[in-house]
Amino acid sequence: MTSQPATATSTSCPVCDAPLHVPANTLAHEVLVCADCQSELEVTSVRPLTVALAPEVEEDWGE
């Protein structure tokens, strides 16, 4: 995580390549959903802005 929010606000979905507009105050490791393909994406870096397919939920995840 970084306390610095994202500056660049657009990239593309790594799954479907659709344009992905990211809210300006997004933080690294935040989870987003692609509006086109509904893939869950992790913001891996905000400077530069990069996203990747979010990891699958693991068995011990949760509350």
């Binding site: 507009h21 959903v33 869950e40 995840w61």
Partner: peptide, 18 residues
């Protein structure tokens, strides 16, 4: 919840999913 083109995930990773 900010939902523009990309929206924070809400459903599949919890959501008070007791």
């Amino acid at each position: 919840a900010r939902r523009t083109t990309a929206a924070p995930s809400s459903a599949t990773r919890g959501a008070d999913a007791g």
